[in-house]
Amino acid sequence: MNFDNYTVRLLTNDDLHPYFRMIERNRHRLMDYFAGTTSKTHTLEDTATFLSENVQKAADRTYFPYIIIDNTDNSFIGYIDLKRISWNIPKAELGCFFDENYAGKGIATKALQLATDYFFHEFGIKKLFLRTHPSNASARRIAEKCGFEVEGLIRCDHITTAGEIVDLLYYGKVNESK
C-alpha cells in the first residue's frame, strides 16, 4: 500500500535493524501503552525473536504487523497492527504508533485510513476498534479523522509499565459497504 512518499507493508524478519532503531528512538514514548513491544525488543536478539514470532502469527492469520516506511530515505516511521482478530464476526483491533519526528504532519491519519480501508476490503473485516488513553489528544484526533466513533470509556482497562491501572477510550468503525 502506498500514499504520498510512504509505503505501508507487512513486517518481515529482514526488517530487524530499521525496526529496532525505530523502537529505540521512541521507546520512552511507547513504554506505557506498548509494553509488550518494548519489553520484547531490548536487544537485537530479542527483537529478532519478536519479529519471527510476529511473522509466524501473520502466516497463521492471527496477527498482522505492518510497518510504515518513508520512501525518501527508507526509514521506518510507524507501525500499525491488526490484532485480537475474530474471524467469526469478523472484527479486530487496530494498534499503531508513529515516530515522534513525523507527528503532526498528517502521515498517521493517511496511513491509518489506508490500512482501515485495506482491512475492510481485503480481509472482509466488518468492524475495527482501537483503544487510547483519554489524554492522548493526538490519537483521538487521528481516530476521529479516520471515521472512528467513541463507543465508550472502559474503566480500569489497562495497566501501564509503571503499574498504574488506567481507563481507556474505545473507538469503533463499521464497514458500511458490506
Rank of each mutant, 00 (worst) to 15 (best):
F97C: 03
T37A: 08
D70C: 02
G172R: 03
T7N: 08
K145G: 10
K105Q: 14
A58I: 08
A143D: 08
L51S: 10
F34S: 05
T38K: 00
K173Q: 07
E151R: 06
E144Y: 04
E176W: 07
M22A: 15
Y171W: 05
L16M: 11
Y170A: 03
V55H: 06
D70Q: 03
G95I: 13
A48C: 12
Y118N: 10
S52D: 14
S86P: 06
Y102E: 10
V55A: 11
I23S: 01
E164C: 06
I77G: 06
L10I: 13
Q113Y: 04
D46T: 03
F20R: 00
F50E: 14
L114I: 02
P90C: 08
T37G: 08
Y79L: 11
N101E: 13
K127S: 12
I107F: 08
L130P: 04
A59Y: 00
E151N: 05
K127N: 12
D99I: 15
T132I: 12
D32K: 01
L112W: 00
R27A: 11
F123R: 07
T72N: 12
H158I: 12
D4W: 00
P65Y: 02
I77M: 06
L112P: 01
E149T: 09
G78D: 01
I142R: 03
T62C: 10
I89W: 07
K126C: 15
V55M: 07
K173W: 05
K91N: 15
K91W: 14
L94F: 13
N175M: 00
L153M: 05
L51A: 11
G104T: 00
R61G: 12
H28N: 05
P18Q: 04
D157M: 10
I68K: 02
E122S: 13
Y19D: 05
G36H: 09
E149A: 03
T7H: 02
F97M: 07
Q56L: 14
D15L: 04
G36D: 14
K57I: 07
N13H: 01
Y63K: 04
M1T: 02
F3E: 03
N101Y: 09
D73L: 03
R155Y: 12
I77Y: 10
R29A: 12
K40H: 14
F34Q: 01
R9A: 00
F98T: 15
R29V: 14
E164Q: 11
Y79K: 02
T38M: 04
S75C: 04
E100T: 15
R155A: 03
R84H: 11
A48M: 11
H42D: 12
I107E: 12
E144R: 02
A143E: 06
G124W: 11
F3V: 02
T12G: 06
R29F: 14
